[in-house]
Amino acid sequence: MTLESEDARRAPPGQRKSDPEICRTVRPGVVFGRAVWHAEGPPRTGVTAVVETGLKRQVMEAVEDVLGLLREASQVAARIENALAGTDLTVDRWRALTFIQSSPGCSMSDVVDALVIPSTSATRIVDVLVEIGAVFRTVSPRDRRRTTLRSSAHGQALLRAVEPEIVRAGPPEPTEKSVP
């Protein structure tokens, strides 16, 4: 790895940047707040990557934040799963049924978009909801190629029955980062 200033990396007039004199190997470091890594290789394969150290730090902090959110989402899903135990609903079925209840006449693509899941998963979930009588699947009167979804009285009763348990499950425990 090499560390050199922006000017030092430029090839002199008449010389290619990939020439061995330009591609020297040294340790990575920081020059004027910029980390510069320069990997030596045969002619024409020298690779230079310049990364703003501040930007790198911001990216790593964002990754940590996303991982924290994923951890919290997993905890919420586990709490909801416990609340749904003993019913015909799983977390994904509950999410789909809740969306269908709030969006009568929605399509399968609406479910896919709302739940951010693959279409095959949405089809399996809705198939089970139809089997247990929680959802009606009908052909759209305006477009026969489109299927619309509506929750049934049984689906509405399922949602009403699990709502107190889900509310009792409550918000996730505060994490170290969320405590001031």
Rank of each mutant, 00 (worst) to 15 (best):
E4V: 05
S5D: 12
R10E: 12
P12V: 00
Q15W: 00
D19T: 00
H38I: 05
G41M: 03
P42G: 10
P42Q: 05
P43H: 02
P43T: 07
G46L: 03
L55I: 13
K56A: 15
M60W: 12
E61M: 08
E61G: 02
V63Y: 07
D65M: 03
L67R: 07
L67M: 07
L69K: 01
E72L: 14
E72P: 03
A73M: 07
A73E: 14
V76H: 01
A83E: 09
T87R: 01
T87F: 02
D88Y: 01
L89Q: 09
V91N: 06
D92K: 07
R93W: 09
R95D: 15
L97A: 03
T98D: 14
I100A: 07
Q101F: 10
P104Q: 11
S107L: 02
D110G: 05
D113G: 12
D113E: 15
A114W: 08
I117E: 14
T120R: 09
S121A: 14
R124T: 08
V126H: 05
D127N: 15
V130S: 04
V130I: 08
A134P: 01
V135L: 03
V135Y: 05
F136C: 10
F136P: 01
F136V: 15
R137S: 14
R145H: 13
T147Y: 14
S151V: 08
S152Y: 02
A153E: 15
H154I: 11
G155M: 02
L158W: 08
V162G: 04
E163N: 09
V167Y: 10
R168F: 11
G170Q: 12
P171A: 15
P172D: 10
E173P: 08
P174N: 10
P174R: 06
T175Q: 10
T175E: 13
E176V: 15
E176N: 10
E176H: 12
K177W: 08
V179M: 12
V179S: 13
